[in-house]
Measured scan of single mutants.
Amino acid sequence: MEVKRLKVTELRSELQRRGLDSRGLKVDLAQRLQEALDAE
């Protein structure tokens, strides 16, 4: 999954699906999701 290409709504949805905080700026959301994906 290319996290950088996702829209903010898509980032928030993916973070919520993983039980992670979905608040913040797009750059923060993308970093949080990328870290979660790397840990999987």
Rank of each mutant, 00 (worst) to 15 (best):
S13C: 08
D38A: 08
G19S: 07
V8A: 11
A36S: 10
V3C: 05
R12A: 08
E40Y: 03
R32C: 03
S13E: 15
L20D: 06
D38M: 09
Q16N: 11
K7P: 11
E2C: 04
Q31M: 12
G19H: 08
R17E: 10
L25K: 15
A30M: 14
L15V: 02
L15M: 04
E35M: 13
E40D: 10
Q34F: 01
S22H: 14
L37S: 05
Q34H: 04
L11S: 03
D28N: 07
L20K: 04
S22E: 12
Q34W: 02
S13V: 12
V27Y: 04
R23Q: 15
L29P: 06
R17K: 14
Q34C: 04
R12M: 10
E14A: 05
V27W: 05
D21F: 02
K4Q: 12
L6M: 15
K26V: 09
V3L: 10
G19Y: 00
L20H: 02
K26A: 11
V3Q: 06
E2F: 06
V8L: 12
T9E: 15
Q31I: 13
R17T: 09
E2L: 06
V3H: 02
L37Y: 10
R23V: 12
Q16S: 12
E40C: 12
V27N: 14
L15Y: 02
L6C: 00
V8E: 15
L25V: 14
G19I: 00
E40P: 02
R5K: 15
L29D: 10
Q34N: 10
V27F: 10
L29A: 08
L37R: 08
S22A: 14
D38G: 06
E40Q: 04
L6D: 00
L6E: 07
R12H: 05
K26Q: 13
E2I: 07
V27P: 15
G24E: 01
V27K: 14
K4W: 10
R32Y: 08
V27D: 13
S22V: 14
D28I: 06
S22Y: 11
R23Y: 13
R32G: 05
A30D: 08
R17N: 01
L15W: 00
R5S: 13
D38L: 06
D21I: 00
L15S: 03
E10P: 01
A36L: 02
G24L: 00
Q16G: 09
K26F: 05
R18K: 05
R23F: 10
K4S: 14
A36I: 06
D28Q: 10
S13T: 13
K26T: 09
Q34D: 07
V8F: 06
Q31E: 15
L37V: 11
R12Q: 13
M1S: 02
L6K: 10
R17S: 11
L11E: 06
M1H: 00
E14G: 01
L20R: 02
V3K: 03
S13I: 13
L15P: 06
E40L: 00
Q34S: 09
E14R: 01
T9L: 07
Q31V: 13
Q34A: 08
A39I: 03
D28H: 08
Q31W: 09
D28V: 10
K7L: 10
S22Q: 13
G19Q: 09
E14H: 03
R23W: 09
L25G: 14
L37M: 13
A39E: 12
L15G: 02
T9G: 12
L6H: 03
T9K: 14
D38H: 02
E14I: 02
Q34P: 04
L37W: 07
M1F: 09
K26L: 09
G19V: 00
A39C: 10
L25T: 15
D21C: 11
K4R: 09
A36R: 08
R18A: 01
R32I: 00
L29C: 10
L29K: 06
S13R: 14
L11I: 10
A36E: 08
D21K: 04
T9P: 10
G24P: 02
M1A: 03
E40N: 07
T9Q: 13
K7V: 07
D38K: 09
E2R: 05
S13M: 11
A36Y: 08
E35Y: 06
A30C: 13
L11Q: 03
Q34V: 04
E35H: 11
L29V: 05
L20Q: 05
V27R: 14
L11C: 00
R32H: 04
L37F: 10
M1K: 10
E35L: 09
A30K: 11
D28G: 03
E10Y: 00
D38T: 12
G24K: 00
L33I: 00
S22C: 11
K7A: 11
V8I: 07
A36W: 04
E35K: 14
Q31N: 15
D38P: 04
D21L: 02
Q31K: 15
G24V: 00
R5N: 12
R18F: 01
E14P: 00
G19M: 01
D21H: 04
A36V: 10
T9I: 14
K26R: 11
K26D: 12
L33D: 07
Q16M: 12
Q34K: 09
A30W: 07
D28M: 04
R32M: 02
M1V: 06
E2K: 04
R23H: 14
A30L: 08
K26C: 06
L20V: 05
D28P: 01
K26S: 09
R17Y: 03
Q16K: 14
Q31D: 08
T9R: 12
D28C: 06
D28A: 11
K4D: 11
E2A: 06
G19R: 03
G19L: 01
L37A: 05
A39R: 13
E10M: 06
V8N: 07
L29W: 00
T9D: 14
L15F: 02
T9S: 11
Q16W: 02
L33E: 11
T9Y: 10
L6Y: 03
E10Q: 12
E14Q: 08
L37P: 06
Q34R: 06
D38R: 08
L11H: 00
K7R: 09
V8M: 12
V3D: 08
Q16R: 10
K7T: 15
D38I: 01
V3R: 02
A39V: 10
V27E: 13
K4C: 09
L6V: 04
L20W: 02
D21R: 01
E35F: 08
Q16C: 06
G19W: 00
K7H: 11
R12G: 03
E2Y: 09
R23D: 15
E14T: 00
V27H: 12
D28W: 00
R17F: 00
E14F: 01
R23E: 15
E2S: 07
L20G: 03
V3T: 10
K4H: 15
L29N: 05
R5G: 12
L11R: 01
E2D: 15
E35A: 13
L25E: 15
E35I: 09
K7G: 13
R12S: 06
L33Y: 07
R18V: 01
V27Q: 07
E14S: 02
Q16D: 11
Q16L: 11
L20S: 03
G19T: 02
L29H: 05
L33G: 08
K4P: 05
L29G: 09
R17G: 07
A36D: 05
R12T: 09
E10R: 02
Q34L: 04
K4V: 06
L25M: 10
R18L: 08
A30F: 08
L33R: 05
S13D: 15
L11D: 03
L20E: 04
Q16F: 07
L33C: 04
L15R: 00
R23T: 15
V8K: 09
D28S: 04
R32K: 08
S22D: 15
D21Y: 08
E10G: 01
L20I: 09
R32A: 04
V27L: 11
R12L: 03
Q34T: 10
E14V: 00
L25A: 15
L29S: 08
A39K: 12
Q31L: 13
L25D: 15
S13P: 04
D38W: 05
R32E: 08
L20M: 12
K7S: 15
A30V: 13
R12F: 02
D21M: 03
A39F: 09
A39Y: 05
K4L: 10
Q16E: 14
R23G: 14
L6P: 03
D28F: 00
Q16H: 09
L25H: 14
L15Q: 04
